[in-house]
Structure formats: structure tokens, C-alpha cells
Computed example of a mutant assay.
Amino acid sequence: MKVVVASQNPVKVNAVLKSFRQCWPNKIEGKAISVASGVPDQPMGEEETRQGAVNRARAARELVPSADFYVGVEGGVQQIGERLFAFAWIAVSNHETVSLSRTGAFELPPQLSRLVMEGMELGDADDLIFKTKNSKQQNGAVGLLTRDLVTRQSLYEQAVLLALIPFLNEQLYPQSQNQLS
């Protein structure tokens, strides 16, 4: 089974492939490709973030039409009142349907929130505040804030598994339910 991950970020690739291998052991061939999300580098809000994940899966399907599955992962933030929360949307597609899932959300501290709201991408803000380098390809904000009790990869893994539910239970989900057009 060939799975195309619509990112070359090792955190996203590893999360996707680990989740697929939990469902289909020894049957997964992974391919990572770089595609545009079609949304800003730092998506703001649920809709923009979800659309980025769907756009990534769609672009992967167009570039590698011979695969069995395409996965888009898009991290974003949502302001609720004075607070800013981070999360990600996952889009898993085959050639007929797309399944969506979302990670849990976590509140960003005021220092990070301020930088992101001023236009900085969350990963860059993490690196500035925590004095790290390229944290978005490592443990991410969630890892830095939880002392790696939850990492960016582990946060994504559960959401990928949840997005695979319709493919694990095809008899319960009509293929026409969600088209990836």
C-alpha cells in the first residue's frame, strides 16, 4: 500500500507512517513530497487550517496519482477571546473519498500568542522564545510546553488514526460521503 505524505517535514511524515503501520503492519510504502497548502504559512482559524490539509492531500494526489492514500497535515491557530490555541487538521484521502480529523487544541502562552498574532509563524516564535532551532521539525510548541510529554508527532499520530476510521470500517461509511474534488 503506497501512502503519500504531502510534506517533507519529518514530524508529519513519521506520524503518518507510524499510524498507517499500526493499522496495516508491514504493508506500507511511504513517500514524502513537498506541496503547497494554498493557505498562509500560519493558518488562522479552523476553516483555513482544515482547507490547508485538504489542499495538501489534493495536491499530492495530482502529483502522484498511482498511490493508494494521500495525507495532508496542517497546523493552525484559533483565537478565542484573548487566548490563542494551536491544533492541526488531518486529511486522509484515497481516490474516492476524504476523511478529516483534528488534533486536540492547547493554549499558547501570551509571549507566543503575541508573536503569532503579529504575523510570525508558530515554529519561528517557538524558536525565538525557547531559544531552539527548527522546533517545528522536532517536538513543536506542544513538546516544548509539555516537556515532551506530548510531542508534535504524538499529537498528530492520534489524529491520523482517527482520520483512518472510515477506511478501517468501509462498510459503515459510504464512499460518496466525502469527495475530494
Rank of each mutant, 00 (worst) to 15 (best):
L17Q: 02
Q78E: 13
R147G: 15
S101N: 08
Q79H: 06
V16K: 03
A159N: 15
T103P: 03
A67Q: 00
W89C: 05
V5E: 01
R56H: 04
V54Y: 09
L128A: 11
K31Y: 00
K12M: 14
F87K: 08
L122F: 06
E157L: 02
L149H: 13
G81T: 12
L128G: 15
N94G: 07
S93I: 01
A91M: 06
I80R: 14
G52Y: 01
Y70N: 03
G52K: 01
L164M: 10
P43I: 06
Q175N: 10
F85C: 09
I28V: 11
L100R: 01
N139R: 13
L155S: 06
Q177L: 09
V71S: 03
P25W: 04
S113W: 07
L145S: 12
K133P: 05
V3S: 00
P109Y: 08
A59L: 10
Y156F: 13
Q158V: 11
V54H: 03
N134L: 13
A15E: 00
V3R: 05
R21W: 09
S37M: 03
S93A: 15
L172D: 14
Q111R: 12
Q78F: 03
G143I: 01
N169D: 12
Y156C: 10
L172C: 12
D41G: 06
M1S: 13
V39D: 05
L155D: 01
G52Q: 06
N26I: 15
G104N: 10
N55E: 12
N134D: 11
I129N: 08
A88F: 07
E82Y: 04
E157N: 10
P65I: 07
V77Y: 03
L155F: 13
S135A: 13
R83P: 00
A141Y: 03
A125L: 05
F130Q: 08
T103L: 02
L144F: 15
Y70D: 03
T146K: 05
S135I: 14
F130H: 04
K18N: 08
Q171E: 13
V77P: 01
R50K: 07
D148C: 13
K2Q: 09
K27T: 06
F167M: 06
A88S: 10
D127S: 12
S93K: 02
M120A: 11
D126I: 07
L112M: 09
P43D: 15
L180W: 00
N169R: 13
I90M: 07
V116Y: 02
K131D: 07
E107A: 13
A125S: 05
Q175K: 07
L161Y: 11
V13A: 02
